[in-house]
Amino acid sequence: MLKWLRFLGVATSIIMLIVIIMGALVTNTGSAQGCGHHWPLCYGQVVPDLNSDHTWIEFSHRAVTGIAGILIVILAVWSWILYSKVSWVKFLCIGTIFFVVLQAVLGGLAVIWPQSSFILALHFGISLISFATVLLLTLIIYEQSKWKAVIAPPLSKGFRVNLVLCFIYLYIVIYSGAFVRHTDSSLGCLDFPLCNGQLIPPLLSRAGFQYTHRLLAGVLVIWLIINFIHAFRYYRNSGWVYWLTLLSILITLCQAASGVMVIFTRMQLSFLLLHSFFVTLLFGALSFLLMFAIRKTKAL
């Protein structure tokens, strides 16, 4: 049975990743109103006539989100029953259900009533948190049922604080990127590394929104490189810390490259989806580091 629980955790993590990418597909194809202003039904029907690409995309996203919600509830209840006394489990079980419901509600409200760009951008951030809670719960399930060891690298207090701040900053960068997309500012700058031939464009403009996101992302890249150098010097024997800091840099570079290609290809859909895919992976990697930074060393 524990083998099936681990499989459920992995499967739920994957389907949550798919939900996020499908959400990006909805946004980037303009399919948010593919079911009209109806939610949770689609044009008042359980299964609508799928005679429109926008309807098909929006309805598929809702269906997969529903499946993900069912799997999350099963995973959370099962984990609670078996491991409720384990640190983080109760918190993550509640979090997985809360955030997937919040994600669905925000999506539904965006369909029924027009929402501001600030709220629409928040929807993507909530989706990432929902994905991360499932991912971390799955890690604990593996620790308890297979590895029989809690991953708690002996990190210095300073590096722990640094990882927490880095994670918070990542969320700010992600929100700024979602805000750029929901204000139709993805092509505010039509070139790179300059912005419409300018070093610094007017900040209170579509170009300024994208320029600000670029600056924030650039600082993040530098921060992640510093993290890796520190991990390489002091934590090479802590495999998880070393490899996750290295992986975070590689993912960020891929994400940055896809972002540049979004500009050069004038928002080709494949690069837009890749951009969302890489940022989700980065959020997952830094979620692991966040857990290692704030959990206490404790043997099974």
Rank of each mutant, 00 (worst) to 15 (best):
S238M: 10
R62A: 03
W240E: 15
C195N: 02
M291Y: 14
L224S: 01
L282P: 02
Q103H: 06
A110T: 15
G158P: 06
I67Y: 06
V180F: 06
S79H: 11
S84L: 03
Y211D: 03
I226D: 02
N28Q: 08
L50H: 07
G36T: 05
T65E: 06
L155I: 00
F98S: 12
G284E: 03
Y235D: 08
H38R: 08
F271A: 03
H275F: 06
W39N: 02
L204C: 02
Y235R: 07
S176V: 03
M16H: 15
L122S: 15
L92F: 11
I15H: 06
G34C: 04
T245S: 10
T12Y: 02
L281D: 07
A257L: 13
A293I: 00
T29R: 06
S117R: 11
I21P: 03
F179A: 04
Y171K: 02
F179K: 03
I126T: 11
K157A: 14
H37I: 09
G66V: 10
A104S: 15
D49F: 08
L170F: 08
R6G: 07
L273W: 04
R6L: 15
T29I: 01
G188R: 08
V164S: 05
P154A: 01
V86P: 04
F209Q: 10
I222R: 01
R233Q: 13
S145D: 14
A178I: 05
I14V: 15
S13Y: 01
V10I: 15
L2F: 12
I140E: 10
F288G: 13
H275R: 07
I94E: 05
R233Y: 13
N28G: 05
L290T: 04
I18H: 01
F277V: 06
C195S: 03
E58R: 08
G44V: 06
